[in-house]
Amino acid sequence: MTSIGTGYDLSNSVFSPDGRNFQVEYATKAVENGGTSIGLRCKDGVVLAVEKLIQSKLLVPGSNKRIATVDRHVGIAASGLIPDARHFTSRARNEASSWRKQYHGAIPVSSLADRMGQYTQAYTLYSSVRPFGVTCIIGGVDEEAGPSLWMVEPSGVGWGYFGAATGRGRQAAKAELEKLDLPNLTVEEGVKHAARIIHIAHGDNAGKDKDFELEMTWVRVDKANVVEVTESGVVKGHGRHEEVPKELVEEAEREAKKALEVEDEEDEKMEES
């Protein structure tokens, strides 16, 4: 970064003369070094998946989760500094819980994303704090909008997506997400694509020699809680965030690995000919 040493990056909330906020940009860099997270908004639910790099073989498999349950119907996947993500989800849980106390109902995912965006943005304003070193993908299903997927960045900006990706493999993941017809996918199809995309994103990066665990959750509406199914098949109702069943994840991973091998073979043939 050319502007290093100019002094405009020493304190939070200080602009450089060309209108940049360096502390926020550094926070974004921290996210870019974290394991990949993706989210898929399908027509009948949302899928969240993360590439969890194994820091040590001594860790218990399945520990140090990076996708958290915020309320029955909302989950958050995070890339970047894990402790920051913990604080972010803790705040999100408080927002969801206080919404329930005040309005006797589940918080709409858009409102939660909006509030979390405001909260994150406040951490770019004061010299006594630093910005969040995480980008969080918030996925859930509510009665009003049905499945919805939001991504909140360290700057506090938060947008709604059909497919979202962050972390070190985000470029490859985004390229793959763009190929999908997300509005018409079911969550079951979404799970397979998510597994494949995480494997592609992992292979595309510097950390590819490291082992990783695939962590995957979904938010779906139980049959009894469906409020409305629109003409295009979008299911609205009280969603439920839970881990994708083990068998499904294993099957999706098997297929993902197979698809990758086939791709590699084709690449080799191309090179030979």
Partner: peptide, 8 residues
């Protein structure tokens, strides 16, 4: 019940 589910 919701808070119990946090632990997962």
């Amino acid at each position: 019940v919701i808070k119990e589910e946090y632990q997962n």
